[in-house]
Structures are given as structure tokens and as C-alpha cells.
Design a binder for these strands. Structure first.
Ligand SMILES: [Zn+2]
Ligand SMILES: [Zn+2]
Ligand SMILES: [Zn+2]
Ligand SMILES: [Zn+2]
Lengths: 206, 206
DNA sequence: AAGAACAAAGTGTTCTA
DNA sequence: TAGAACACTTTGTTCTT
């Protein structure tokens, strides 16, 4: 997936998903988070032992991108864990190959505690993934309808908090319905779900 | 030379010299600076091309130690150059294998512009190397004599600037004499020489 | 969506002249 | 004190289940 020397990455040609750890192209969910193949391999190799061995020589806040991910394994692993990658999904020996894999149950969404209107790169990556999943389930149209309805209002009305709130609620109920229908969403980590909500906040309040 | 997992390095057993770049054990001068074998290899591989290719993703001031030297090749190379490693000494093809190697001529010492009394790790590494070279040439006794003479003075006298200055001058003249006699010193980079002077400043003013 | 196997990049040491 | 050759570590991709 990676291409070196800052050339165009294959991501644009083969996958719309973005690795939540480094931003490289991703093709699916690994250890409970959307990641690229290299972050998948990295996590499998390091997650079980390494947090004791690896130590950041800086301030444990090294930026992790497709270009910097090699520079600090400690922070790369830390970010993997922070984004919800689960070392329990690493199989010990040939453990449990025949077990049925249980889909995690959707948790109640007690979100909305954060209402950022400025996104970090990581949040944008999450958002991009959420949008792609939305596309896959054809719900983007629902959001589009909401937006069209929204932008057809006069400008002054748009910024009224109560109006915005009503649209947020509308969006949220749409999303919640989708969530309940979608087994794929259940395999997204909590961060992805939170980002989905943030997406709606962003669209309706920007 | 390197030992992993923070065990005791071989440096303590096989060499008293310290790599000016990373602090690992060194066995000699490479590309005009005292370095370990890995920094030697690193410089040969990267110095001719890489400063255009390698770019620090931080602020170009990454710390380079035996443990962090892998983390930012850009800053490692930058430090190599800063400490005076010379890419001109990298042979192109089988260039000039039969040429006589010219020892660089000693430059006049117009130093002393810096009079730090607190040393960085890099400065201590340089100092350590200088001390070892001094040992090799049996001049440490001269310095010891100066120190004994110095510490036999009453404390109040020691801190008098004029007294300190006179000892600094004494030290400097000793060092300058040694420098003029020693071809080995001529192969040290300017930084090493500066550090030698700082050594004396430190010993006589600490 | 997991691991195994393979491949490549990057780094470090030993040998030789 | 330089490079060559070798060895090792770390990372990344493809294949198989
Ligand atoms: Zn990644
Ligand atoms: Zn870090
Ligand atoms: Zn070194
Ligand atoms: Zn750097």
C-alpha cells in the first residue's frame, strides 16, 4: 500500500478507507479498528509484549503519519491502543480457530459530549471512513436531503441554536436507525461511532 | 558495539572513546570525527545524497543517542555534518586509493568565544574523548599538577577571576604546546579542539 | 479478519587493504 | 581509516485459512 518518496499512494486507486493510525490506505478492519496492512502487522508483532519494552524517548506524543510511523514504535503502539485496537484479538498459538466469532453488541450512544467544530487529521480520517461506510449503505442521501432542506432556509434562521439543534436531532435519529440496522457498524470501534456523530454535528453546524 | 535492551555496552570493555554523534563506543576517527562503526556506516550510506531526501518531520532538533539514533535519520545526518564529518572523504568508486592522505594542518586556535560552565551530553562525550587522547600522550599529569596546585589554594582565592584566568592561561599554553606536537590531534575536528579548551576552562573554573 | 511466509528497507559488525 | 561483505532488525505485502 505504501509508496515511498512521496508519490501518490495506491489508496486513491484501490480503497477509499483510511488507516486510523497512520492515514495510509486501508482495506478493512483489523483488531477492531480500520487500519492499513502495515499497522495490522505492526500491532500483531508488538502489542503483546512491547509496551514494557518500547519507550518513547520524547514526550509520548509523537505524531504518527504514513511517513513518521517508523520513527517511534512506542507512540505508534500507543496510538493503536488509544484508537481501540484490541490485543485480545491476537491469537495465542492456534487458539480458538474454531470458535464462533461474536460480533460486539452495539452500545447505547451516550455521545455528544464533545462538539468540536475544528477537526484534527485523525478525526478527518475517521470521518472519511464513516462517510465511506455511509455510502456503502446508501444513507448519504438522507443526509443530503437534510442538508438541502437546511440550506434552503434563510441564513439568519440557520444559526439559531434551536433550529440547529432540531436538525442535529433529526440527523441523530437517522444515524441511530442506521446503526441499529447495520452489523458492519457494530464492528467499528467506539471512536468511529463518535466520529459519525461528530460528522453530523459538523454538517449541520458548520 | 551496540547492545540492545539497555544492557551494559561493550564500550566499557573495549574502548574508552565515545561516538560524538550517538554516544556509543568508538574505536577511531571516521570521516574526520570520532564515531562508532554504525554512525560511520550511516554517514557513508547517506551523506552524499540524503539531505535532500531525508527530512525531519519535527523541528530538526531531534536528540540523537544510542537509543534514538534510528528514529530520525535526517537529524542523525544533520548532527554528523554539524560535528564536522566530511562527505568529501567518501570515496567515489575506487577514487584516489593510491593518493597520499594529507593530514589537515592545524588551524590557529581562536577559540574561547564560548565559556559554558554547564555541559551538554554531546560536550561531555567530546570531553571524554579529549581526556582519553590526553592520556595517550601522558599530558594528563600536567593537568593534574595544575589541579593540585589549584586546589591547594584557599577557597576564596580560587574564585577570584584574575587567579582563575592565570590558571586558564597556564592550561592553554600547555595544551597549545601539546597540540603543536601531536599529529593525532590534527585529525580531530574543530569541535574536538574547542572541547579540549572547554575542558580546561571547566577544570579551572568549576 | 486473522496468521504465515515472503520481501524489502534500514541498520550494525566484521573483515580486508 | 576507508569500503565490501555479511548479519541482523524492523517494517511492509501477499498468500492462505
Ligand atoms: Zn496504518
Ligand atoms: Zn514517541
Ligand atoms: Zn554513533
Ligand atoms: Zn528529526
Amino acid at each position: 500500500m505504501t509508496t515511498y518518496h512521496r508519490k501518490i499512494t495506491k489508496r486513491m486507486f484501490c480503497s477509499p478507507l483510511i488507516c486510523c493510525i497512520c492515514g495510509d490506505g486501508a482495506r478493512g478492519i483489523n483488531f477492531d479498528v480500520i487500519t492499513c496492512m502495515s499497522c495490522k502487522a505492526f500491532f500483531r508483532r508488538n502489542a503483546l509484549q512491547a509496551l514494557n519494552v518500547l519507550r518513547c524517548r520524547r514526550k509520548s506524543n509523537c505524531e504518527i503519519t504514513i511517513e513518521t510511523r517508523k520513527n517511534c514504535p512506542a507512540c505508534r503502539l500507543q496510538k493503536c491502543l488509544k484508537f481501540g485496537m484490541k490485543s485480545k484479538l491476537i491469537r495465542l498459538d492456534s487458539q480458538a480457530l474454531t470458535q464462533d466469532i461474536q460480533l460486539p453488541r452495539p452500545r447505547p450512544l451516550s455521545l455528544l459530549q464533545n462538539d468540536y467544530s475544528t477537526f484534527t487529521v485523525d478525526q478527518w480520517n475517521l470521518l472519511s471512513n464513516v462517510i465511506n461506510v455511509c455510502n456503502e449503505y446508501n444513507i448519504i442521501n438522507d443526509i443530503k436531503c437534510l442538508l438541502i432542506e437546511y440550506y434552503s432556509l434563510p441564513v439568519r434562521l440557520r444559526v439559531k441554536p434551536l433550529t440547529a439543534l432540531s436538525y442535529m436531532n433529526k440527523s441523530l435519529s437517522t444515524i441511530q436507525t442506521i446503526l441499529k440496522r447495520s452489523p458492519y457498524f457494530h464492528s467499528l470501534s467506539l471512536n468511529s461511532r463518535r466520529s459519525l456523530i461528530q460528522n453530523n454535528i459538523y454538517l449541520t453546524t458548520n
